[in-house]
Simulated scan of single mutants.
Amino acid sequence: METMSGYLDALEALFLYPSDEAARAWWTSEGYAPPAHPVVPLATIHKVRLQWLDATDDMLADSRAFLFDHGYEAGLNILAYTSKTRDAARAKRGLPPLKSEL
């Protein structure tokens, strides 16, 4: 049985270094049905990373670029942080602002 800490550490690693292979392994481990398209697991990770308070400016830009390159610009109806809104959300939780690199 996986601990919550282990689960969160694995997600953080996936957010820090998203890859197609890791995203597919995560997708399968969560018990999701086979994706409708092969890019869906990695796109899901990039969508979630846009809402992650620890995503650097470079990570936010990388995830946006990935999603737009794969046709998700029209369906990106999520709260996607910018560096300004991410740092404002971090401040509300008593966290310091992030620099471009972790």
Rank of each mutant, 00 (worst) to 15 (best):
W52K: 09
V48W: 11
A33E: 12
S83N: 14
L102Q: 13
D54T: 05
H37E: 07
L50C: 07
R64A: 06
R93W: 11
L50M: 10
A61G: 09
E73S: 15
D62T: 10
G31P: 07
W52R: 08
L102S: 12
V40K: 00
S63I: 11
M59R: 05
H37W: 02
V40A: 01
A36V: 09
L50R: 09
L42T: 02
L42M: 05
F66K: 05
Y32V: 00
L102I: 02
P35W: 03
D87P: 00
L95N: 01
G71Q: 09
D57C: 07
H46V: 02
G94M: 13
F66A: 02
S83H: 14
L98M: 14
L60W: 03
G75L: 10
L102A: 14
W52S: 04
G31T: 05
A88R: 15
D57V: 11
V40N: 00
S63C: 13
S29P: 00
A88Q: 15
S100C: 12
A91R: 12
L60R: 09
E101C: 13
I45N: 07
R49P: 02
D54Q: 10
D69E: 11
P96N: 08
P96W: 04
R86T: 13
A74L: 11
S83K: 15
T82C: 07
L67Q: 12
L42G: 03
P97F: 03
F66P: 07
K84W: 00
T44D: 06
L42N: 02
G31Y: 02
F68Q: 07
L95H: 03
R86L: 12
L42C: 02
D69A: 14
L98G: 08
G71Y: 06
D62Q: 15
L42H: 01
L53G: 04
T56Y: 07
P96K: 10
A89H: 12
T85E: 05
L98D: 09
R64F: 08
E30N: 05
E73P: 00
A91D: 04
G75F: 13
